[in-house]
C-alpha cells in the first residue's frame, strides 16, 4: 500500500507533535527537580518561574551529606537491598526450579497456594505481623524487614523463575540427571547460568522494591532514627522540617534516590522485558 507523501508528512508531524508535548509534560517535573536542587536558598523562594539556576549552587550536594546522615541512611537501605537480592537469587530460584522441574507429590496444590498468595493484599497481614514482631521484640530492628526477604518470601519472583525454567528444554535437565548430576547440581550448574535474563529482571525488581519500600521501614524503624532508610530520611526532611526554605535540599535528596534507580534500569532494561516475557525463548 503506497501512501501519498503529503499524508505521510502530515501523519508524521501529528505523531511527533503528540510525542513531543507528552514527553515534555512527563519530564518537566524532573527538570524542575534538577534545577531546584541547584538553586541557592534565596532563589528557591522567589515567586517567579526560573528554570535555569543562577548562580548554580553545586555546594547543595556536599552540604546535604553534612546536614543529614545520608551515608548512614544509604547503608541501612543497602542492608535491606542485599537481603532482598539474596532471597531473590537463592531461595526463590530453588523454589522456582522445584515447581518447574521436580515432580514431587502435591506440587500443583503448593503451586496453587503460591498463586493465591500473589492475590493476597498486604493490608490483611500488616497488623498481625506487626503484633508478632512486637511480641518477639523485633520492632525497631531490621529483623522484620530482612527475615521475609532472606526466605525469599515473594511469590511473584518464584512464579517468574518457574515460567522461565519451564522454557528450558527437557533434554538438558534429563541428560544431566542421567550423567549423575544431583537436582542441586542441575540447578546450580545448568539452570542458574542459563537464566541470566530472568535473574537480571528479578534483581531489578528486588532492588527497586527494597530501595522504594516505605510502609515497612515506617512501621518498624520509624521510632529508631539510627536505622532509618533513605526513604524515611527523605520523608522526614520533607515532612517535619519541610519549610519552603529547604526545597533545594529536598530536591538534592530526591536526586540521590533517583540516580541509583536510573543506573540500575539503564543497565538492566534490555533484560526487563525479555526476562519476564521470554518464557519460551530458549525453545527457539
Amino acid at each position: 500500500m503506497i501512501e501519498d507523501p503529503r499524508t505521510k508528512l502530515l501523519r508524521h508531524i501529528f505523531i511527533y507533535a503528540i510525542l513531543s508535548v507528552g514527553a515534555l509534560v512527563m519530564v518537566v517535573p524532573l527538570l524542575w527537580t534538577v534545577s531546584t536542587s541547584l538553586k541557592t536558598r534565596d532563589k528557591i523562594t522567589i515567586r517567579r518561574l526560573e528554570l535555569i539556576p543562577d548562580p548554580v549552587a553545586w555546594e547543595n550536594y556536599p552540604y546535604l551529606f553534612e546536614a543529614r546522615p545520608i551515608m548512614q541512611y544509604a547503608r541501612n537501605t543497602m542492608i535491606i537491598v542485599v537481603a532482598s537480592l539474596f532471597g531473590a537469587w537463592v531461595p526463590c530460584t530453588l523454589a522456582g526450579y522445584a515447581f518447574a522441574r521436580i515432580p514431587f507429590p502435591g506440587r500443583n496444590v503448593f503451586f496453587g497456594i503460591l498463586l493465591a498468595t500473589m492475590m493476597l493484599p498486604y493490608v490483611v497481614r500488616l497488623i498481625p505481623l506487626f503484633l508478632f514482631f512486637d511480641e518477639i521484640g523485633w520492632t525497631r530492628t531490621f529483623g522484620p524487614l530482612i527475615l521475609p526477604r532472606l526466605l525469599g518470601h515473594n511469590a511473584f519472583y518464584i512464579f517468574l523463575y518457574r515460567q522461565f525454567f519451564r522454557g528450558i528444554p527437557d533434554d538438558i535437565h534429563d541428560s544431566a540427571r542421567i550423567d549423575g548430576c544431583s537436582e542441586f547440581g542441575v540447578w546450580w550448574r545448568i539452570f542458574m547460568p542459563m537464566s541470566r535474563p530472568v535473574l537480571a529482571a528479578v534483581s531489578i525488581f528486588a532492588f527497586s522494591f527494597a530501595w522504594n519500600d516505605f510502609l515497612n521501614p515506617l512501621i518498624y524503624l520509624g521510632s529508631n532514627k539510627e536505622l532509618w532508610t533513605l526513604a524515611l530520611g527523605l520523608n522526614a526532611l520533607q515532612g517535619f522540617e519541610g519549610d519552603d526554605n529547604s526545597l533545594n535540599l529536598i530536591m538534592v535528596f530526591s536526586m540521590l534516590m533517583i540516580i541509583p534507580m536510573l543506573v540500575v534500569f539503564y543497565f538492566g532494561q534490555k533484560h526487563l522485558i525479555s526476562g519476564v516475557t521470554a518464557q519460551g525463548s530458549l525453545k527457539g
Binding site: 507528552g22 519530564v27 526513604a231 527523605l234 520523608n235 519541610g242 530536591m251 533517583i258 534500569f265
Partner: peptide, 20 residues
C-alpha cells in the same frame, strides 16, 4: 522519556510533587 518518571522511587516522586 515517558518511562523515566515511573522509575523514580515513589517517595521521591511524591516529595517532588509536593514541591512541584
Amino acid at each position: 522519556l515517558f518511562y523515566v518518571p515511573s522509575v523514580v522511587p515513589l517517595v521521591a516522586a511524591t516529595v517532588i510533587f509536593a514541591g512541584f
